[in-house]
């Protein structure tokens, strides 16, 4: 699989089973973020195949990619919000843009904010949130559409250990509810902590190849 000028990944084949929990690890610059971006159609491969819910991503137009993204929740390390909207409005954004911002759906918003511990921060602006709060708000936004898959790119990169644990707990809870989770992280302690709660496959990107990590994790 290649992206940009040269070949980024060689001989990679990964099929993510519904309801599974995967960690993706590897050194900085190994292509974890690029791999995730390929997974939600933000980047298109110049060779090889990426299939989203069975559909070849290159066969989808922009609207097709947008519709696929409604089935995928994404959390980035450097999470971005609409700074002029409140936390509640930002979390409800996927419902708004898909025209599903009905009273019933919005009723779940309060519950969701409570689940991530941000009920009392609902009216705050994103700039007023701490790093951990931003990550939890991003997770709430990612799951409000009840997506089938959540892709998280270094979700604990900017937060302390205690907050990382809290976020991990939320991801594990989601997985128990049937959501497929794929977390890219270089934090091996997080992976170890997670493995005591959930049966997770750990994949490592190394030398342009994807390998199943050893028992040391």
């Amino acid at each position: 699989m290649s992206y940009g000028g040269g070949e980024l990944f060689g001989d990679i084949s990964l099929k993510v089973q519904p309801g599974s929990f995967h960690f993706l690890t590897g050194p900085s610059g190994s292509g974890k973020t690029t791999f995730l971006k390929l997974g939600y159609g933000a980047l298109l491969p110049t060779s090889g195949q990426v299939r989203l819910f069975g559909q070849e991503v290159r066969s989808l137009d922009r609207d097709g990619v947008a519709l696929a993204r409604r089935r995928i929740g994404v959390v980035h390390q450097d999470v971005k919000f609409l700074d002029h909207l409140s936390v509640a409005d930002n979390v409800a954004l996927p419902l708004t843009v898909s025209g599903r911002d009905t009273a019933d759906q919005l009723a779940n918003l309060d519950e969701l904010l409570a689940w991530v511990g941000l009920r009392d921060r609902a009216d705050a602006l994103p700039a007023e949130l701490s790093g951990g709060e931003r990550q939890r708000a991003a997770l709430a936004r990612a799951v409000i559409m009840q997506p089938e898959v959540v892709l998280a790119d270094e979700p604990t990169g900017n937060i302390d250990w205690e907050m990382s644990q809290r976020l991990l707990t939320l991801l594990v809870e989601l997985n128990r509810m049937g959501t497929t989770i794929l977390v890219a992280t270089h934090d091996l302690n997080l992976i170890r902590a997670a493995k005591s709660h959930v049966q997770a496959r750990v994949l490592r990107i190394s030398n342009r190849r994807l390998q199943l990590a050893g028992a040391d994790l």
Binding site: R69, K80, F81, L82, L93
Partner: peptide, 13 residues
């Protein structure tokens, strides 16, 4: 950035 966020959450162009 607004456009990037909207696309990320599934907004059509």
């Amino acid at each position: 950035q607004v456009i990037a966020v909207l696309r990320l959450v599934g907004a059509q162009d």
